[in-house]
Nucleic acid binder design. Sequence first.
DNA 1: GCTAAATGTTGAT
DNA 2: TCAACCTTTAGCT
Length: 265
Amino acid sequence: MPEGHTIHRLARDHRPLLVGRTVSLSSPQGRFATGAELLTGRVVTRIEPYGKHLFYGFEGEQHLHVHLGLYGKWAGGVGPAPEPRGALRLRMVAGDHWLDLRGPTACEVVEPHERDAVVARLGPDPLRRDADPERAWARLSRSRRTVGELLMDQAVLAGIGNVYRAEVLYRAGVSPFRPGRELAREEWDPMWVDLSALLRAGVRAGRIVTTEREDRERRSGTARRDDAHYVYRRHGLPCRRCGAEVRTQVMAGRNLFWCPVCQAV
DNA sequence: GCTAAATGTTGAT
DNA sequence: TCAACCTTTAGCT
């Protein structure tokens, strides 16, 4: 489930398994091999997430660049690795641990300047300590594009996907159709803070939960198991706060969800 | 069992 | 704007 929280969680989980260790890499899928085997025998020096991109740094200043895309997934375990099945793009083995990568959009060995080029075209990532929210504000506040489009643009903000877009706008009470330039600074600053908090909670939980505990508890009598979101994929259902029907419409190529009452303007 | 859709991006039209 | 990439799952039958 790859928005930024998934990528940062993977970096956190993979560091103790890989950093400082000699790793062997193989690409059983063959036809999608991207030279990863050439890194076999080298030591992993660091693992860095930027937005939805993940970079595994190796001795010799080369990096393995991974982008999970829509369906990419890592699996792993301890002990002998299972027989490779299906489209297994990459297997990494370090000591007792094995890690299998399936279905990524990107899995390639890159030079430092290529890594830098990827990072350079990304906006600030709210999960990174070195993120500069002013860069995002500079883009948002000058744009005629809608805030619903801007939040999905990785050059404006890195790591936000379709779930966080819908949920953070709902929590801010901002219409996705508002042009970025009509967003007030006093509205945007709390949204950045909220995004950071939601993403951090997502890293901890390993999934996206954007509803407040009180909201979930208040509804507990009605026993909906799936109460992790306010509006995402809830079109046609009543808004959890006002009861109006949650709506959906394609924006920036993805299904947008919003409450027409709570997010009227 | 089958189909459609899904938390994403790229490159062609 | 749309197809392609490629995997999993939800919701049908």
